[in-house]
Design a protein around this nucleic acid. Sequence first.
DNA 1: CACCGTTTGTACAACGTTGTAGGCAACGTT
DNA 2: AACGTTGCCTACAACGTTGTACAAACGGTG
Lengths: 335, 335
Amino acid sequence: MRHRLKDVAERAGVSVKTVSNVVNGYVHVRPDTRARVEEAIAELNYRPNLSARHLRKGRTGVIALAVPELDIPYFAELARHVVTAAADFGWTVLIDQTGGGREQERVVASGITDHLIDGLIFSPLALTAEDLASLDGTPMVLLGERIDHGPADRVVIDNVGAAREITSHLIGLGRRRIAAVGSQRTDEGASARLRLAGYADALRAAGLGYDETLVAPAPAWHRADGAAAMRGLLTSGVRPDAVFCFNDTLALGALRALHEAGLRVPEDVAVVGFDDIEDGRFSIPTLSTVAPDKAQIARLAVELLADRLDGDRAAPARELSASYRLEFRESTQTP
Amino acid sequence: MRHRLKDVAERAGVSVKTVSNVVNGYVHVRPDTRARVEEAIAELNYRPNLSARHLRKGRTGVIALAVPELDIPYFAELARHVVTAAADFGWTVLIDQTGGGREQERVVASGITDHLIDGLIFSPLALTAEDLASLDGTPMVLLGERIDHGPADRVVIDNVGAAREITSHLIGLGRRRIAAVGSQRTDEGASARLRLAGYADALRAAGLGYDETLVAPAPAWHRADGAAAMRGLLTSGVRPDAVFCFNDTLALGALRALHEAGLRVPEDVAVVGFDDIEDGRFSIPTLSTVAPDKAQIARLAVELLADRLDGDRAAPARELSASYRLEFRESTQTP
DNA sequence: CACCGTTTGTACAACGTTGTAGGCAACGTT
DNA sequence: AACGTTGCCTACAACGTTGTACAAACGGTG
């Protein structure tokens, strides 16, 4: 049922290698020979065996994308863009969920590189630079801030700047008691730390004090965590007039908690998020947010990987920055 | 940097095959020999080359999951469950987006099977039984209703029954003018047809007429389509007191449109969806819905695939049914 | 002690592909 | 006419692994 080069060769009356040459677009094949071979390929519906090709060439045409969880909308949207960007290079993307734990991430980062893939785009939560250094040489591009001075290429966005800008926007609306939701003290919370820093920067620049009681931690960044953190803030008696949630799912949870508490958004409390996931465009109210250019992130990551694969694998690691913009929607604007 | 069986063999002072036997857990290896080999493996950090192994054995340990779009929450959640279920079989999952078009789906279904994967779990929108029959023999499990009597194993849920039940629930609440959002006349709309049938069944059983003007089509099933369809219904002058949306994202869009029109949910209009995506548990109001057991769907699909891989590939196609339950939340209940 | 079956290990070939080396025409140049 | 050059194609080996066949060592039995 499944045919090999040999079958095509026999049918076309040429050598196996000539068929291989046709398949690979080698120049010196007579037009009529080429035509005969192509006809045979079509008749047999021949497709190259990628494993054999890989074994011989050392390339599979498959790259992996490893993210903590697929059903976190941000990662799902990112995955979509990576698949699209990779297609431009003729690559297939193998998507892996790490779950976000350090051990799991280490397993993925080392295990997945068992010769099946050419390279890896990795969005780590817990992996350390140390873990990373112990991996053998599968080219890798990191997304996000977790690993500070690792040996790998990275695509980042300016978390501090974005957080500062969106917080300043809230201040510009006249809000003075601005809460932050999503802080994390663990090592996993690199993005949390940076966004918190940007938040604090903006308060300081506006002459507003940084009030510890307005900062709510969240163990993970799901809707439920956002709702719980918001409820915690409200029952603790602090009365914020605005909330900066460190991502959109937290913000959606916070909206929910505010709704349950009978508070109006944005009249009583303005809410902003981070990531610009699609839900935020249809939530009630729609959600103001920082919109990282996910397509650009994906494209830069794929391009970095391509450069690394084709170029010098020992070249120094590069870091590229993706852009973002602010989206102002109902949760910060009176209709 | 990367070592082969041969390197391990030299270090341990045995033949290549003996190392292979140790790696594969072959029984008849003397304990001290095994220990020596394992030590050498550890020292060299040896990992088998999966391409070579595949070439020899005909198995890769990779299965593919093909879905229309990854950033549709239902598919993202499903993907997560499939990855988890596959891990129990030691499989890695390669996730592919088809985009949902017939041609693209055909490309994925045939192209992806280029020797890289052992099997495919496929959630088709547009592919026909005819397309499917033309594929060579990569084992495949289909999800959903699209292909009626195809040659492949399938996992389905009882769309008609579920739609009937949720509609009956609305009727039980005293609603009489119940709209349906998401109908599709194209071939892609198999699920839409079945859910519409269940909706009509329930109306008929309750002695309510089927009113064409209460049925709104939706080209795709995104939030934006739900919002547009709902706006269309409202501006056309029909005044439903309940809406059955054929999936949750449509329902979230509909909630948005109702909100913009100043209608209260559930007081003025009750809303139900289908899929039980996480968003629906945090939306305002929270969304009543049909909750298919996604974990079960994923598990059944993986098991069917495993059976097919290990067993008789020519055995007749099987069809398994996954269960569902109804979730009643705020969008159909007054607080 | 000869015999036999089991245990433990080895050598070789094969999976399907492509890189290398080289052969044979046909051509233009001296 | 002899020569190198070019175009086109073929034969062979190799990528790293495992199945098959078989050899050597071992233990128990008659």
